[in-house]
Each structure stands twice: as structure tokens, then as C-alpha cells.
Design a protein around this nucleic acid. Structure first.
Lengths: 130, 130
DNA sequence: TATTGTTATACTCTATAACTATA
DNA sequence: TATAGTTATAGAGTATAACAATA
């Protein structure tokens, strides 16, 4: 088998698993991904550019995703303290709870693998993403 | 880091790499994925359902993707010899050449990893896709 | 001049449900 | 009755280019 084809398939399958498991949230795969990425950060805060880099999305895509998450009260846009061109994104209290739920569901799937396998896959994925 | 977030990121990054490397083909990521999956099969032939399962897409998505690939002369729809409800999809001669190019670009990326790493990742991805 | 984020536009992907033809 | 694939519709993701505000 070709690894990249398996990669695409696994991404589809895990995304489908997550959206089904978290269907009551009514969030799209990209919305789940964006909120989870934000929740996984040390301070749960990022600029739009940083979040775009983290999820592999373009600024134009981010705008729509963030609009919907903001409209649902899951995150807020704030001005950057030092650069007034930049927008900082921060989860609300409810957004943080939802992010924790998503990360928990992801961790549950991850537990199918041994810690050694997780580390090996992680290193390989970083190498492919270079 | 959360492995599933890295998985999403790697999928985006590799897809972006491939579409840039094969920009002259003018194919969308899903079209590349469908054609490569078809080319990776032993006989390069599949039903619409089989291809949908392979790329993690719904029948409704497949219809559009296959329409465009057919319109470009890269594949043909044929009746199934035994079940007249079923449609068999087969690359044309040009489609087979394009599929080979896509698979070659994928293999090139894959060569960044050792064969052992490829096998480890492959096993882990199958486990996550279950 | 260059960068951040948004808007405008057009195309592609996705999900749901309804439909046709066939089994 | 059930299944394979398509069509219809609406919402979401994507790329490109243009834009305003700021650096």
C-alpha cells in the first residue's frame, strides 16, 4: 500500500469517528479541528495566522470558521496588545469546555496505540509535513 | 502534542505538497486521491462503492469527482458484467499515466522515511481507521 | 513597501433526502 | 424490500485576487 493513500483514509476515518462521537456539538470537522488546536495550546490563545499554520488552512478559510465559532459563543476575537493589524483568538469558558471534550475524544482514539507507536507516528508525520 | 491534530496537519501539508508538485495537471486534491487509489489497485478497476470506501468519500461526492475525471478523459464508467445496478470505473490510457505520476510523487515523499517507519505508521493508521 | 486579516468570487467537497433502476 | 448510483439542495472548505489598516 501507498502510505499517503493510507494517511488520507485514516484522516477521513478518524474525522468521521469524531464528528459522530461529538454530533451533539453540531460542529463541522474544521471547526472541531480549530477549537481543539486552540485548546491544545499552552495558553489557549493564538493569532489567526498561527491557528491557520496549525491546522493547515488559509486565512480566508479561517475567517469563515472563526466567524461561526464566534457566533456560537465558543471563542472571541481580541485585538493584539502590540500589533494592531493582528487578531488574537481566545476560547470562551464554554469554548474551553468544548475544546476539552474534543481533545478527550481524540485522546481516547489515540489510546488504541502504544506510547511507542504514538511517538513513532508523530515523528514520521512531522517528517512528512516538513 | 495530540496525535490526531498532527495527523490532520500532515494530511493538509502532504496534500498541499502534492497539488503544488502536480499543479500542471489541474486536478483537485480529491481528484488526485481518487485517481491514485484507482491506479494503486491491482487491476486499476473498482466499483463506485469500492472507490468511495477507499478514499473515505460518500457516493454523492464520488459522482462529482468521477464526472470531472471522466470529462477530462482520465477515466471511463462501464457497466458491471454481473450486476446492472453497479458502475465500474477504469482509467483510460492517459488516466493510467497520470495515476502513475501521482503515485510516483507520493512514493517520493514516502522515501523520507525508513521502510521500518513506513511499516510502523501504516500499522498505526490502520488501527486508528478501524 | 510588506504584512495581517477580511471581503468577493468561483469552484469543490460534504451531508441529507429523494429518486431510478436493478436485485 | 434492499442496494447501487445519481440528482437536488444547501452548507462548508478552498484558492485567487483585491482591499483596508497597520507596520
Amino acid at each position: 500500500m501507498v502510505l499517503l493513500l493510507e494517511l488520507q483514509r485514516a484522516t477521513h476515518a478518524t474525522l468521521h469517528h469524531l464528528t459522530a462521537h461529538l454530533a451533539d456539538l453540531g460542529l463541522s470537522p474544521s471547526e472541531l479541528n480549530a477549537l481543539a488546536n486552540l485548546g491544545a495550546r499552552a495558553d489557549a490563545v493564538a493569532t489567526v495566522s498561527e491557528l491557520g499554520a496549525a491546522i493547515g488552512g488559509r486565512p480566508t478559510t479561517l475567517t469563515g470558521i472563526l466567524d461561526r465559532l464566534e457566533q456560537r459563543g465558543l471563542l472571541a476575537r481580541e485585538p493584539h496588545p502590540r500589533d494592531r493589524r493582528t487578531v488574537v483568538v481566545r476560547p470562551t469558558a464554554e469554548g474551553a469546555r468544548v475544546a476539552a471534550r474534543i481533545l478527550d475524544a481524540m485522546a481516547q482514539l489515540e489510546r488504541r496505540l502504544t506510547p511507542e507507536a504514538v511517538e513513532a507516528v508523530s515523528a514520521a508525520l512531522r517528517e512528512l509535513s516538513r
